Simulated scan of single mutants.
Amino acid sequence: MPHIVVYSPRLTREKKVACVAALTEAFCASTGLEKENLVIHIEEHSYDNIAVGGKLLTDAFPEIAEREKAYQLASD
């Protein structure tokens, strides 16, 4: 059974639904396999746990830091 693992910042449920649908369509169209055989895992990470170019995303991008604050407040 094929697996796709998606590592991403936190996503809304609506974005997860859209992502899974798009990945499933693309995978099945390109491989010819049936969607019932595909397993997709979404692993979400805090923006504080993702770095690009040697900087945490929350340090490199102020708008991302604001989103991280909103997620933290929502989970408290």
Results as ranks from 00 to 15, higher is better:
E34K: 15
L33H: 12
V6Y: 01
I40F: 01
M1G: 13
K55W: 03
G53A: 07
S46Q: 08
I4N: 02
K15C: 05
S8G: 06
T58L: 04
T24F: 08
I64Y: 06
E44G: 07
E14T: 14
A29I: 00
A60E: 07
A60L: 14
P9K: 02
A29G: 01
A26K: 15
D59H: 05
A22K: 14
I64A: 03
A70N: 08
N49V: 01
T31K: 10
S8M: 06
V52K: 06
S46R: 09
K15W: 02
V17Q: 14
G54P: 02
Y7E: 07
G54S: 03
R10V: 06
A65L: 06
S75W: 04
R67W: 14
H41R: 07
S8D: 04
K35T: 06
L11T: 04
H41E: 09
P2S: 08
G53M: 02
K55E: 11
Y7W: 06
L73N: 10
K55S: 09
T58F: 00
I40W: 00
L57N: 08
L57S: 04
H3W: 08
R10E: 07
T12W: 00
A65P: 08
C19A: 14
R10W: 07
N37R: 15
H3Q: 09
Y7A: 00
I64D: 04
A51N: 05
L11P: 05
C19P: 05
T58P: 01
Q72V: 12
R13L: 15
E44I: 06
E36N: 13
E34N: 14
Y71S: 02
I64F: 05
G53R: 01
K15A: 14
E43H: 13
C19I: 13
K16Y: 13
T24W: 07
I4P: 00
A22E: 15
L57E: 07
N37Q: 14
L57I: 09
P2Q: 09
S30V: 07
Y71F: 14
G32V: 10
A65S: 13
Y47M: 10
A65C: 06
L11R: 05
E25R: 15
I40D: 01
S46C: 05
L57D: 03
G32H: 12
F27G: 05
V20D: 05
I4E: 03
L57G: 05
G53V: 02
H45T: 03
T58K: 02
E25Q: 15
S30I: 01
D48T: 04
T58G: 02
L73A: 13
H3F: 11
E43N: 13
A18Y: 09
T12C: 04
C28T: 14
A29D: 15
D76E: 13
H3E: 07
E25K: 15
T58D: 03
D76F: 09
D48F: 02
A26E: 13
E63R: 10
L38Q: 07
P9G: 10
C28P: 02
E43C: 11
Y71V: 01
Y47H: 11
F27V: 03
L56R: 10
V17H: 13
